[in-house]
């Protein structure tokens, strides 16, 4: 394993500080609790709050590398029939995920101000 791979495999994409993001800052009230991304309706837009690494940290790091970063905005474009995968638009492209993986990504209602990837996380740290 190369040095860079070792460094990358030690990344923590599930930052503890982001877990309670929004709770104190006010824009996610009781009605806007965090949801798994698979719960989004077709066409609904949301902001990614957390990429959970509970069961599979390698998977969480991969989802992060695919663009599912805290603060990024995501749209569920459409879903396959019979509980199959769904297409999400993230980081200016479209990708299909199965519900099992989408569930590990928690989203909150997007604030009205445009969110830059990275900025959301930074703000959470500040809060």
């Amino acid at each position: 394993m190369s040095e860079i791979t070792l460094t990358l495999s030690r990344r923590r994409v599930d930052r503890p500080a982001v877990i309670d993001a929004g709770a104190p800052s006010g824009h996610t009230g009781p009605g806007h609790a965090l949801r798994g991304m698979q719960e989004l309706h077709e066409g609904e837009q949301a902001a990614i709050v957390r990429v959970c690494d509970g069961s599979d940290a390698a998977c969480a790091r991969r989802l992060f590398d695919l663009g599912f970063a805290p603060g990024a905005s995501v749209v569920k474009v459409r879903r396959a029939p019979f509980g199959g995968p769904a297409v999400y638009r993230i980081a200016d492209y479209e990708i299909a995920l199965r519900p099992e993986q989408a569930r590990t990504i928690l989203v909150g209602t997007e604030s009205s101000e445009p969110v830059q990837p990275g900025a959301y996380a930074a703000r959470s740290f500040a809060a």
Binding site: M1, S2, E3, I4, T5, L8, S9, R11, A58, C59, R61, R62, D65, L66
Partner: peptide, 22 residues
């Protein structure tokens, strides 16, 4: 490969070939 943090044997190949220490 989507990342140098490999998740499949295919991506491991990429990491191994590019490893500067090897």
């Amino acid at each position: 490969a989507y990342s140098l943090d490999p998740i499949s044997p295919d991506e491991q190949v990429v990491d191994e070939v590019l490893d500067p220490d090897c």
